[in-house]
Structure formats: C-alpha cells, structure tokens
C-alpha cells in the first residue's frame, strides 16, 4: 500500500474511532463505527485479503451495524443527567489510553516484524478457495467451536431477554419453597 494512500486513510480511521468514543449521540457513534469498519476493509484489500474485506463490509459494516442502529432507535436513549462521569475519571482514562499508545508505539517502532519485508504471497492467497480449505482443515476445531460459542451466546441472550412469567402465572409453589 502506497504511503500516500495509507497515511490519509489511517488518519481517517482514527478520526472515525474517536468519533465512536467522543460522540454523545449514540446514533452518531454508531455511524462513526460504520465508517471505521468500512475503512478497515480498505486495509484488508490492500493486504490482498479480498474475501475478508468483503465479509468485513457485509457482516460488520452491514448487518451488525444495522442491528446496532435498530437497537439504539428502539431503546430511544436520551442523555442521563445523573450519568456524568467525574473529570478525574476522564483524565485517568485519557492518561492510561495515552500511556498504552506510547508503549505500543514505542514497541512497534523498535520491532522489525518477521515476514513483513516483501516476501511473495503464496499462490491463491486471500481467495475463497484457499480460505475455505484452511478453515475446514487446519482451523476446523476453531471453526466448529465458534458455532458452539455463538449458540451459547444466543441461549444466554434469550434467557436474559425473555419476559419472565409473573409469579401468579406459575404453577403452584413447588413443595420445597417456603413462601
């Protein structure tokens, strides 16, 4: 990726990410997140990972974000005056974020990542066929586990979200429960 393309894009991505955190309006936050995720997809394209880029746009920037916006509009959030965090907390958060940025930046600056130099990509890199073969051979266990993970998340979400029957609706108190 040419540096003339990379640095402007990187600045835009960071601006998008800051927009997510700093916006008071949740809808604007979510839209900034869409922009950030979209811009991330550009890096994947530059790294020859076209399928991942497409999935990033379809799944994250598309489906997940639509869901986010739906939930935000359904909840009809309004700023809670009791919810103001103290400036001390904000300063501490900013301080630790900056510290992390400095440490990570310093470390990455000093490190030459192995394989980063212009090594030729393997045949068919980033194509659907190669990715699928990897997914269903080398990463089969991880792939199947992800489905269990998602299933648990769905079951959990249903348990927590569904309306409980009121005590009157329930059958007579079970024998073990002293009322």
């Amino acid at each position: 990726m040419s540096p003339y393309l990379f640095y402007p894009l990187a600045c835009l991505t960071i601006a998008g990410a800051l927009g997510v955190v700093l916006n008071n309006n949740p809808v604007r936050s979510a839209l900034s997140l869409v922009a950030t995720l979209f811009l991330l997809a550009v890096y994947y394209i530059a790294l020859q990972a076209h399928l991942v880029a497409a999935l990033q746009i379809i799944v994250y920037a598309g489906a997940v974000m639509v869901l986010f916006l739906f939930v935000i509009t359904l909840l009809n959030l309004s700023p809670d005056p009791a919810d103001r965090t103290s400036p001390l907390f904000g300063a501490a958060a900013l301080g630790s974020a900056l510290l992390l940025a400095v440490v990570l930046g310093r470390a990455l600056w000093a490190t030459t990542l192995p394989g980063a130099a212009n090594t030729p990509l393997p045949e068919g890199f980033g194509t659907t066929v190669v990715l699928a073969r990897q997914l269903f051979s080398e990463y089969l266990v991880a792939f199947e586990l992800t489905s269990i993970l998602l299933l648990v998340a769905v079951v959990g979400a249903v348990v927590l979200a569904k309306r409980d029957p009121s005590p009157a609706d329930m059958d007579a108190p079970a024998p073990g429960r002293e009322a």
Binding site: V103, L104, R106, A107, L108, A110, T111, T112, L113
Partner: peptide
C-alpha cells in the same frame, strides 16, 4: 533485546 518489546508486551 529492545526490538522484541512487542513480544514482551
């Protein structure tokens, strides 16, 4: 070494 700071992080 200093250039393996990322690993230690």
């Amino acid at each position: 070494a200093a250039d393996s700071l990322v690993l230690m992080l």
